[in-house]
Simulated assay, not measured.
Amino acid sequence: MLSDLPVLRIFEQGVIAAERPFNPQIQKDPVHYYDIEELVSAPHIEIVVAETDGRLVGSGYARIEQARHYLKHQQHAYLGFMYVEPEYRGRGVNRKIIEALRQWAIARNINELRLDVYEENIAAIKAYEKAGFVKHLVAMRRSTGKD
């Protein structure tokens, strides 16, 4: 998987480029979201890649996180780094990645998956809903006007 680092770094920039229109607070390039080496090596994180004809076309990870103390479950799996190359979108690649991550979580007795998506990212929301996710919370922000 470490041999995939150059492609995964390109995918990371694809995630950032896709999210930039929804978040004016993302810094100018160069910017990085992930410590990809940690994603690959950490025991509480599973990274999955999708491959077609020897070419990486998608990625995603599940990271086991502690749940809030008042919830029924003690841990959940947070999904991130969800990316599919544009020419492979709409072919079920994302759904297969999510299913692989779901199976990984089940094997670790995790019964809840969570992820974040920008409210204005309608295409992503529809894709996640097709994969069985439901809207849960709305995060809100406001500038103090001191930008």
Score class of each variant (00 low, 15 high):
residue 59 S to G: 04
residue 40 V to M: 10
residue 2 L to M: 07
residue 10 I to C: 07
residue 143 S to V: 07
residue 136 H to K: 15
residue 45 I to R: 02
residue 115 L to S: 06
residue 16 I to G: 15
residue 83 Y to L: 12
residue 3 S to N: 13
residue 79 L to V: 11
residue 3 S to Q: 15
residue 126 K to W: 01
residue 109 N to T: 12
residue 27 Q to V: 13
residue 2 L to I: 04
residue 1 M to H: 04
residue 56 L to K: 03
residue 32 H to S: 15
residue 147 D to R: 12
residue 55 R to G: 01
residue 96 K to T: 03
residue 23 N to T: 04
residue 101 L to V: 04
residue 141 R to M: 09
residue 10 I to L: 14
residue 99 E to D: 10
residue 52 T to V: 12
residue 127 A to I: 03
residue 44 H to T: 12
residue 41 S to Q: 15
residue 3 S to P: 02
residue 119 E to Y: 03
residue 141 R to L: 04
residue 100 A to N: 06
residue 5 L to M: 15
residue 62 A to Q: 04
residue 143 S to T: 14
residue 68 R to A: 13
residue 74 Q to A: 10
residue 1 M to F: 05
residue 24 P to N: 06
residue 83 Y to R: 02
residue 31 V to C: 08
residue 144 T to P: 03
residue 125 I to E: 00
residue 94 N to F: 03
residue 145 G to Y: 03
residue 37 E to W: 01
residue 20 R to C: 07
residue 97 I to E: 01
residue 29 D to I: 07
residue 46 E to L: 06
residue 15 V to H: 08
residue 30 P to T: 12
residue 129 E to G: 00
residue 43 P to E: 08
residue 137 L to G: 00
residue 42 A to T: 04
residue 79 L to G: 05
residue 47 I to D: 09
residue 120 E to C: 02
residue 56 L to W: 08
residue 114 R to D: 08
residue 126 K to A: 12
residue 32 H to T: 15
residue 83 Y to C: 13
residue 12 E to P: 05
residue 20 R to W: 11
residue 5 L to K: 09
residue 143 S to K: 14
residue 42 A to V: 06
residue 42 A to K: 03
residue 63 R to G: 04
residue 19 E to I: 09
residue 119 E to T: 12
residue 128 Y to D: 08
residue 129 E to W: 00
residue 61 Y to F: 14
residue 66 Q to C: 08
residue 114 R to G: 00
residue 110 I to L: 12
residue 1 M to S: 15
residue 147 D to V: 12
residue 116 D to M: 04
residue 56 L to Y: 06
residue 81 F to L: 08
residue 104 W to S: 05
residue 128 Y to V: 06
residue 70 Y to T: 14
residue 11 F to L: 14
residue 144 T to H: 08
residue 103 Q to M: 10
residue 59 S to I: 01
residue 104 W to G: 06
residue 134 V to E: 14
residue 134 V to M: 09
residue 59 S to M: 02
residue 99 E to N: 13
residue 119 E to W: 03
residue 107 A to T: 11
residue 14 G to L: 09
residue 144 T to Q: 06
residue 41 S to V: 12
residue 28 K to C: 09
residue 70 Y to R: 11
residue 63 R to A: 13
residue 100 A to I: 01
residue 54 G to V: 09
residue 131 A to C: 10
residue 146 K to Y: 02
residue 142 R to K: 15
residue 66 Q to I: 08
residue 34 Y to V: 09
residue 26 I to W: 03
residue 23 N to F: 01
residue 71 L to K: 05
residue 89 R to Q: 15
residue 2 L to F: 02
residue 54 G to Q: 07
residue 15 V to W: 06
residue 115 L to T: 12
residue 117 V to Y: 04
residue 84 V to A: 07
residue 7 V to A: 11
residue 142 R to E: 08
residue 147 D to I: 10
residue 27 Q to M: 14
residue 82 M to C: 10
residue 16 I to C: 11
residue 32 H to M: 09
residue 145 G to F: 09
residue 122 I to G: 04
residue 124 A to P: 01
residue 91 R to C: 05
residue 83 Y to F: 15
residue 70 Y to I: 13
residue 73 H to E: 15
residue 135 K to L: 15
residue 30 P to K: 14
residue 32 H to V: 11
residue 124 A to N: 03
residue 77 A to V: 09
residue 62 A to F: 02
